[in-house]
Design a protein around this nucleic acid. Structure first.
Lengths: 169, 169
DNA sequence: AACGTCTGTAACAACTATAGTTACAGTTGG
DNA sequence: CCAACTGTAACTATAGTTGTTACAGACGTT
């Protein structure tokens, strides 16, 4: 299907900001957690800002933070901000209009694909960023009672990219 | 999202065969309706054959037809035959394991994405090829009482490809 | 006002998946 | 044997995403 990882990365980025509470994060910090280039993050932040999910501050001491509370941001909001098209596409080239099937299959397919898109959107609308953060918590050691800092800030110049793919890819 | 048209084309192809009833169709005929190259169709037919949705016959007078009745083929069967991966992907490169969010976001995302995939599959499981053909019927003139042949078989050597994209693309 | 640290963005290279094309070996009915 | 098919390899073309470098502009700090 050649799906993109844009949604996954966007959720990751916003989760970091929810985790960081109100403190603005720099694109460089976010990129280090996502394991990508800071420009990729900034590009995505622009899209998220256009959808009013984050606010950014230029200049020294700048950075980005959530535009509203995590419980008021659904995964559907995020999906719509970064994934422009529906789950499936129709034919690259329109089918043959001289064929009784070809001329009408698009209409029927569109109905089906709309149903699919709606089903996806219903699922995503039912989960907020806050839910994601909550599901994250049990995985993280909370023995100190203090929330761990977002990044361990290891002195490694550049994390060697682990090339093995995750289960989904 | 960069979704592929594989599912749409596969449904189109199988709909043609349901429409043609038991008569085997040649890849060339199918390609003319889909408006693409016959090899593209043959490649897809191989995948559909591996999933036991069609049977093909080599040699002269050969062709492909449905392996079972259209009411016994769901859109989920088709989807699984031609779309290998889920709707979304995770990160291309694994996130930074030194970050408390990065190390755990994959687990949470996988749960969410599994929910999305399940929702899509539920929708697709609820519609059969027969349903698609039924939805197609009202669009087609049936004044003669005879079902129109699958292809008008215009003598045009090669249909000029209409390059304008359909609404979904 | 100059400086250092940020974001925003353009421009382009690299990578990936799909789609399209040509070519040909192998199968089968006549 | 021949003509008409499928199956498949090998390649090119196309398109979207991702990665990278470079730099203009914003904005605290001094």
């Amino acid at each position: 299907m050649s799906t993109s990882s844009r949604f996954a990365v966007a959720v990751h980025v916003l989760t970091l900001m929810a985790w960081a509470d109100e403190e603005p994060l720099k694109s460089e910090q976010v990129a280090e957690s996502v394991n990508t280039n800071a420009v990729v993050i900034r590009r995505m932040l622009c899209e998220l800002a256009e959808s009013n999910l984050v606010v950014s501050q230029t200049g020294s001491m700048g950075g980005s933070k959530l535009a509203r509370l995590p419980e008021r941001i659904t995964l559907l909001d995020i999906y719509q901000a970064v994934e422009s098209r529906g789950v499936f596409s129709l034919h690259r080239h329109p089918p043959n209009p001289d064929c009784p099937v070809g001329v009408n299959i698009g209409t029927v397919l569109n109905e089906v694909l709309d149903e699919v898109d709606s089903a996806v959107e219903r699922v995503l609308a039912n989960m907020t960023l806050r839910d994601v953060v909550s599901r994250l918590q049990p995985c993280v050691s909370t023995t100190t009672g203090k929330r761990a800092t977002v990044l361990a800030h290891s002195k490694r110049k550049q994390a060697t990219r682990v090339q093995s793919v995750s289960a989904r890819n």
